[in-house]
């Protein structure tokens, strides 16, 4: 820059990616992908156009939700979803604690570590609905398949975060506890638990929230909960009922988020 004559200095903003070939290559790649993706998109615009009326009907349904005509189904579905959420979260937490301990590199011996990490990875890669299909095939239709699905998913979520949390703990207190001659369980109770407890509680509450939302979905494949009711409502184009169910779900999620915010503040 200094060699350039002072009168004619120009400046352009430096590009995000310095290598010009990489930059052009990425831009071209993105453009080609978008063209291909949009080009192979098969959309029947006539069908979409016809559907707009129904979309309007749904919006009207949201303005005037109908809780009454299918009240029995709605209330039973929501109750079942809530019950499934509570049991699945409880089972999930109980199971994720040992799995999480096993998946923490600083606590578990190598074979246990690998086993637990494998379990966590399996639970995280498998979509809930896919797990639900398998459990329904094994245990039959009904809420039990749903509970097992959600418990399994909870393990993947909680155990992974718990393990990472344990690996991040300050080793000094644990060392001090070990120096007193404490057993392994005492070490957990005095050295590790106080450090990870607030976050574990926060994560469990968050997972409770997620499990409720998921419980509304897996009913679509027959694993219990409000999903089946919702599916029926959409099949029959009963948008006012569907809107009522969705609004109930949103309200419960909001309430849960508010409550967990309060609890988390008290714990920390």
């Amino acid at each position: 820059m200094t060699g350039v004559a002072a009168a004619a200095r120009r400046w352009t903003a430096p590009p995000l990616i310095a290598d010009p070939w990489l930059r052009r290559g990425l831009a071209l790649g993105a453009a080609v992908y978008l063209a291909l993706a949009l080009g192979t998109l098969s959309v029947s615009w006539r069908r979409v156009w016809e559907g707009l009326d129904r979309g309007a009907a749904f919006l009207v349904g949201f303005a005037r939700p109908d809780f009454v005509s299918r009240w029995v189904e709605i209330s039973e579905g929501i109750l079942e979803s809530l019950v499934m959420t509570v049991v699945a979260t409880a089972i999930g937490i109980l199971l994720s604690i040992p799995v999480g301990l096993g998946a923490a590199r600083n606590l578990a011996p190598r074979p246990v570590y690998l086993l637990c990490r494998g379990l966590v990875a399996a639970s995280r890669t498998l979509q809930e609905v896919i797990v639900a299909i398998l459990f329904v095939a094994m245990f039959g239709f009904g809420p039990l398949a749903g509970v097992l699905t959600l418990s399994f998913a909870t393990i993947g979520f909680l155990a992974k975060l718990l393990a990472e949390d344990i690996e991040d703990t300050d080793p000094a207190p644990a060392e001090a506890i070990r120096a007193t001659g404490a057993s392994w369980l005492q070490l957990l109770n005095y050295g590790i638990q106080p450090q990870v407890m607030p976050r574990l509680i926060g994560l469990s509450l968050y997972r409770l929230d997620i499990n409720f939302r998921e419980s509304a979905v897996i009913g679509i494949v027959g694993a219990g909960g409000v999903g089946a009711t919702l599916n029926t409502a959409f099949d029959r184009y009963e948008y006012a009922t569907a809107a009522a169910i969705l609004m109930t779900i949103i309200a419960i999620v909001m309430a849960a988020e508010y409550a967990s915010g309060l609890i988390r503040r008290r714990v920390q």
Binding site: S42, V48, G51, R54, V129, N231, F234, D235
Partner: peptide, 25 residues
Amino acid sequence: IVSSRSINSLIWALLLVSIIGPGVL
């Protein structure tokens, strides 16, 4: 934000299939 987050994409799909018809869109 909370409305969008509370409803799983599968339920959104259920709703949209019923409105604009089945398909990728």
